[in-house]
């Protein structure tokens, strides 16, 4: 085995007698053993303190509340989008028929779409939540067709 192969074997919990025998006579691999221990020690974070652990109390409940809030926001957002589509349909019908009485109807139907600009922060946050690039780095399963941003 080469030193490179030995070093990879040294990452295993039990490298084996063959590896031990090599390391015993190889200064380069002995140096790697020291480096591995040093880097591991320096990079390892202290265990979470009791104050940190206490932070997780009630996490499931608060996450559930947040999930429900986000889902309500999502439904509202979908509702606004549907209303806006419907409003646009009616608006185009009003345009093509060009009758004054239709214009009154258009204004009233379009209203929910414009009111979305006054939606609560909860509702406005939802599209960002769904479109977060972190989510789309999840590779299994792939996003459904048409969902890739």
């Amino acid at each position: 085995m080469t030193c490179e192969e030995i070093e990879l074997r040294l990452l295993e919990p039990e490298p084996g007698a063959e590896v031990d025998a090599h390391v015993a006579t190889c200064a380069s691999c002995q140096a790697f053993v020291k480096d591995l221990a040093l880097v591991t020690e320096r990079a390892t974070l202290p265990a979470p303190t009791s104050a940190e652990r206490a932070m997780l109390t009630g996490l499931a409940e608060s996450t559930w509340s947040e999930w429900r809030r986000a889902q309500r926001g999502r439904q509202a957002w979908v509702g606004y989008a549907a209303a806006a589509c419907f409003g646009a349909l009616v608006a185009s019908a009003g345009f093509w028929t060009a009758r004054p009485v239709r214009e009154v109807v258009v204004e009233r139907v379009v209203a929910p779409a414009s009111s979305s600009s006054l939606a609560s922060n909860d509702e406005l946050e939802e599209p960002n939540f769904v479109a977060d690039d972190v989510f789309f780095e999840v590779t299994w399963p792939e996003p459904l067709e048409g969902e890739t941003p």
Partner: peptide, 22 residues
Amino acid sequence: PDEARDLTQRAFLQAFEAARRT
């Protein structure tokens, strides 16, 4: 620590969102 808690919660929300989408 509270920022770590916030990130933890966000990770769960995104994982559940991944589940919902699939």
